[in-house]
């Protein structure tokens, strides 16, 4: 069986041009995209091995001499294909602000404190069950200059590789109940409400560790399905 990548499912993505997010205005193409068939080039993609990832890359609270400030959390979930099959050996990379809403990045000048015990970058290679698991701290909201009094909801950036180059996904994970959702043009660039909500993690008491850390579940669904599904196709 080989991989197929239906185009219809990409309707979940935001458009390139979303004027409320002002930086898209000069960076979205104006010419129509040119439709091309999927060749061996598109249907293959990078393959990772364990050598690229260390166990310590998954715990963002132990990468420095001391412990970072903030609310310790566990973020776990599965990387899945469109049929719900786990994607093994998927490289998951994440980066985030610290608990005060400050990125370690040199270009972030938001006047909130840096944390000498927190960088905010991690990576994980999924196992055969497609599962990843990070320990980190909950990132803070932070201001940006898109419009007056603009604040991003707390989020964690995720970068994920799947079975083909077209499965590649960069997205953001949000936290349930964030009061900033209605005001965020990046979150609201996703046209469909149900699709937006797929980027909101679910609090999970079963993942939560007593006296230690709150737990969140966040599954990630990538493009791609087997050419011959073993189940009946979904009726839409």
């Amino acid at each position: 069986m080989s991989l197929v990548l239906p185009r219809s499912s990409t309707v979940a993505h935001p458009p390139s041009l979303h004027p409320a997010y002002t930086s898209t205005v000069l960076r979205a193409p104006r010419e129509p995209l040119v439709l091309v068939p999927h060749t061996l080039t598109e249907l293959t993609g990078p393959v990772y091995g364990q050598g690229k990832v260390r166990d310590s890359d998954a715990d963002l609270t132990t990468q420095h001499a001391g412990e970072p400030q903030g609310e310790r959390i566990i973020v776990t979930g599965r990387v899945l294909d469109e049929d719900g099959r786990p994607v093994p050996n998927a490289l998951v990379e994440l980066w985030q602000a610290n608990a005060a809403g400050r990125y370690v990045h040199v270009r972030d000048q938001h006047p909130a404190p840096l944390d000498p015990n927190f960088t905010g970058a991690g990576r994980y290679l999924t196992g055969t069950d497609g599962r990843y698991r990070f320990t980190t701290v909950r990132p803070g909201a932070y201001p940006w200059r898109n419009h007056h009094n603009a604040w991003r909801p707390a989020h964690i950036h995720f970068s994920v590789f799947g079975p083909s180059f077209l499965s590649r996904l960069v997205t953001q994970m949000y936290f349930p109940g964030d009061p900033l959702f209605p005001f965020d043009p990046i979150f609201n660039s996703i046209p469909d409400e149900a699709a937006r909500n797929r980027l909101v993690a679910r609090f999970d008491l079963a993942v939560t560790q007593p006296e230690w850390a709150l737990g969140y579940q966040f599954d990630i669904v990538l493009r791609g399905r087997e050419a011959t599904p073993t189940e009946e196709p979904h009726e839409h």
Binding site: S9, A97, L169, V170, T171, R223
Partner: peptide, 13 residues
């Protein structure tokens, strides 16, 4: 799954 995880920008950082 109900659909793909939607894409979001890599942002500036």
């Amino acid at each position: 799954p109900d659909g793909l995880s939607p894409s979001q920008t890599v942002g500036p950082f």
